[in-house]
Amino acid sequence: MRKYLKYCLLFLPSLLFFGGCATHTRYVESTGPRTIVTTDINIQDFSYAAEEMINSLLASGALDKTQIQPAMLAISRIVNNTTQQIDTDLLTKKIRVALNQSGKALTTTTIGIGGIAEDPLAKGIQQEKEFYADKKEPQRMPDFTLSGKIIEKRDRQDEVRQVSYSFQLSLTNNDGLAVWEDEKEISKQSKRGVIGW
């Protein structure tokens, strides 16, 4: 009995150590309040920025000023001026979905920067359809283009580090005028840990 007890006492620290290393993974709502916050741009930051941008855009009534409703929107360049590699579709897709649901604008997937379509198959079908229909009138051009920039700014004071992200968007009509513009800033502070950031 004493021998078993000795073995138990011998392995107990290792059991406790490795038991403590077990990872607990769970699902969280990606739009919920329990997501991880880091100084990088997190998934929820795109949601916050998109939410504010959509509110602002719909409230402005800028999309209502076209002859044909819903307005046609093309996505232009969203410049990533941050130190991180991010896919700007995380921002633009939310805006596109919301505008589509609102019934105020539809996004073209056959017109893109440098003539590159987002959906090449859709562009091919569109061209073929126009060819067989012997269509002479020009293709409907987008009423608006959406462009923007994401900027990062880092500051430090003593042990406190601050990183700010500025989400800037512009809606330009086909006369080249920015009919709606907005900016959403998100700032995060963290205290420096023992190692690095």
Binding site: E29, P33, I54, K94, G103
Partner: peptide
């Protein structure tokens, strides 16, 4: 809608804040 997300905010002591939202569709 993609706009229906939990938005974190901070409010200072005795501060009054206005939260604005626009419906996603007519």
């Amino acid at each position: 809608t993609p706009t229906s997300v939990w938005i974190p905010r901070q409010i200072e002591g005795q501060e009054t804040m206005t939260i604005t939202a626009v419906a996603p569709a007519a």
